[in-house]
């Protein structure tokens, strides 16, 4: 009799141990999990003077440079970036106004997205800062992330042959990222 009671106790206890339950939880919430980090990343910088223009020609009004930027076209970028804010800080000590253009090209050198920034004239004593923010999202972002290179054109309104001064650019990008299943 005692043996049977012990067995009953054992079976009951084992059943209890193996009947643990999970409740008040919803594992389907994994569908809603998303990582939304905000990433600040330096972009392009340069410092040019009048010689950069005149080395090409005394009356040259435009200097250009190009860099690959495959990052934009990477799988991570195309799938995860939902918005990109490009911030440009131009410090101009040329006594004339300038324009800087940023052309985002694909592998076929077709312009996918373009930013044009008018820069105020300054002077060597009091350089003038021109700040500009370009917010890119939705379809514009699709165009941007199909680019693989950036062409930067700096255009002067008149010859810099006789002027001293510099144009200093600092820039960064703020990438709004969303990672989900």
């Amino acid at each position: 009799m005692k043996k049977n009671i012990c067995l009953l106790f054992l079976v009951t206890s084992v059943l209890f141990l193996f009947n643990a339950c999970v409740k008040d939880t919803d594992f389907n919430q994994t569908d809603a999990i998303e990582l939304t980090p905000l990433v600040e990343l330096d972009f392009i910088f340069f410092n040019i003077n009048s010689q950069n223009f005149t080395d090409i020609d005394a009356n040259n009004l435009i200097v250009s440079d190009t860099t690959n930027y495959d990052f934009l076209n990477s799988e991570v970028a195309t799938e995860a970036i939902i918005r990109a804010d490009f911030y440009f800080k131009n410090t101009n000590s040329f006594p004339i106004s300038l324009i800087t253009e940023y052309q985002f090209l694909n592998d076929a050198n077709e312009i996918q997205y373009e930013v044009s920034i008018p820069i105020q004239d300054g002077n060597t004593v009091n350089p003038v800062i021109t700040e500009f923010t370009e917010i890119i999202e939705n379809n514009d972002l699709v165009n941007l992330t199909s680019a693989t290179k950036v062409v930067v054109n700096t255009i002067a309104n008149s010859s810099l042959n006789t002027f001293d001064g510099n144009l200093d650019l600092q820039s960064k990008a703020t990438y709004y990222i969303r990672l989900e299943q």
């Binding site: 990343l41 330096d42 972009f43 392009i44 910088f45 340069f46 040019i48 950069n52 080395d55 090409i56 200097v63 250009s64 440079d65 860099t67 930027y69 930067v152 700096t154 820039s171 960064k172």
Partner: peptide, 11 residues
């Protein structure tokens, strides 16, 4: 240290 891409505008 990464500071971005420096363009030199060579002729």
């Amino acid at each position: 240290t990464f500071e971005g891409i420096e363009l030199l505008f060579p002729p």
